[in-house]
Amino acid sequence: MTDRATPPMKALYQQLILDHYRNPRNRGELEEDGSTVEIHVRNPTCGDEIRLQLRVEEDRIQDIKFLGDGCSISQAAVSMMTTILKGKELDEAFGVTRRFTGMMHGDEEAARDPALGNLRSLAGVSRFPVRVKCALLGFEALQEAMKKSRSREEG
């Protein structure tokens, strides 16, 4: 990438992350109907925000889209998250969330889990405690959206 950046910066800002930041996947809005849930989260200290929509049918994420504004880490993480979760059952999605959260807190085994796919490129973020919450913002929205979807099913 560059001659000037330090090794931790090269590990943090990998091409894959910058690509998702510049060309986010699944960015947009779902047409709302009875099977969509929507959650809006923001990080009040930095202003990063994500609006996440899921279409859940038979306990499976049939479709997922987001709109957001924020740093490369928060926006790349949510973009990668959507590519991995589309078509997954909610239980699997909760599992990915737990693994990713573990990776952000330095769990090296989680960082090798193939279930995380591209998200593994964000492993370097765990070395920057102030940026971990950026990477987790999309998953925070996901968890709330899935809980909302489940409680609606049960209700």
Binding site: P8, M9, C71, S72
Partner: peptide
């Protein structure tokens, strides 16, 4: 994003605020 600017500057010992 300003946060990314601040992180990269910090990696070179330069402390600024972003937000």
């Amino acid at each position: 994003h300003p946060h990314d600017i601040a992180t990269i500057l910090d990696s070179e010992g330069v402390a600024i605020r972003a937000g």
